[in-house]
């Protein structure tokens, strides 16, 4: 985790290899295991580890790390990345939780319809979604026209080309990633727990605060982690919806690679991002494990 050579996505793979076979199934010989894993290992080696290895070697050329870390734009875009990702994650998880609860409380038919609505943005290209938001949020767009038409505002609000717009676009893209893990956590709750709580004297608010919410913490943290990691890699959205001050690290990598043709610098930036995210994820999981006595039990 702490080595630059170990990227984030390698963690689940190693975990799966090292894991014990599920209990209750007959233990297979080791060779069978390797055989079953072979396609994944080959795939990873060719398409993941090799390019990463190239990135690592490239990044060591021309004092790339020292150079990029001295670039004020790099530092700025790093900070932007974490600020925008944190805010987007927070908004996505909160809205995703509400959506998941609404879906969970409905009957089977409404569930299917609502899930389809949640999945709709999933099936739409990110560029399409971003431009749709740009149309909605521009000075003479739907939102501003409506606000002025209703007499709520006098002139157009600056809704586009700023951080707000970037976060709106990102949350829209990220919502399904939060709704599904949270819904899964809600669906796993035994219905009778709620009945029991109510029979024991709990009202709606108490049932939610004391039973539902604590039991969905694992789902919420899984959603948060997933959404945050995806957030840090956003590239198109800051370009389409953001202003000059909202560029994220992916834009900076693009700038180094294509405008400056400084591949060493671009590689160093990519690995720095991977490193920082890895450290944050590790810290996050440690905090969760320390706090989640329910899981430890």
């Amino acid at each position: 985790m702490t080595s630059t050579a170990t990227p984030v996505a390698a963690t689940p793979v190693t975990a799966a290899v090292g894991a014990d076979p599920p209990r209750g199934r007959p233990r297979r010989p080791r060779s069978a295991w390797l055989l079953l894993l072979a396609p994944v290992l080959v795939f990873d080696a060719v398409l993941f580890l090799t390019p990463i290895g190239r990135l690592v070697t490239q990044s060591t050329h021309d004092q790339a790390y020292q150079r990029v870390l001295k670039d004020p734009l790099v530092v700025r875009s790093m900070l932007n990345t974490f600020e925008i990702s944190a805010l987007s994650t927070l908004a996505t998880v909160v809205i995703g939780y509400l959506l998941a609860v609404v879906i969970w409380r409905r009957g089977p038919l409404m569930r299917v319809i609502l899930f389809a609505l949640v999945l709709l943005p999933f099936w739409t290209g990110v560029l399409v979604k971003n431009f749709a938001w740009a149309v909605l949020l521009q000075d003479n767009g739907l939102v501003n026209s409506a606000l002025q038409g209703l007499g709520i505002t006098d002139g157009p609000l600056a809704l586009l080309h700023n951080r707000f717009a970037v976060i709106v676009g990102m949350v829209h893209y990220l919502l399904p990633y939060a709704v599904f893990p949270i819904f899964a956590a809600l669906a796993a709750i035994d219905d009778r727990l709620e009945l029991a709580a109510r029979s024991l004297g709990a009202g709606e608010a108490s049932v939610f605060r004391r039973i539902i919410l604590p039991l969905t913490v694992p789902g919420v943290s899984a959603a948060g982690l997933l959404v945050f990691i995806i957030s840090t890699g956003f590239f198109i959205t800051p370009v389409v919806l953001g202003g000059p001050g909202d560029m994220m690290i992916a834009n900076e990598i693009d700038f180094y690679a294509r405008q400056l043709t400084d591949f060493a610098g671009a590689s160093a930036l990519a690995l720095l991002l991977t490193l920082v995210v890895s450290v944050l994820v590790a810290a996050y999981q440690r905090i969760l494990r320390a706090g989640g006595e329910y899981e430890a039990g």
């Binding site: 727990l193 029991a196 109510r198 029979s199 024991l200 004297g201 039991l215």
Partner: peptide, 19 residues
């Protein structure tokens, strides 16, 4: 509502709060 009926209910699955 159930919360005001003051009845002790034990379910088949016990419905203990796991957390």
């Amino acid at each position: 509502p159930p919360k005001d009926r003051n009845l002790g209910v034990v379910f088949q699955s016990y419905a203990l709060f796991p957390h």
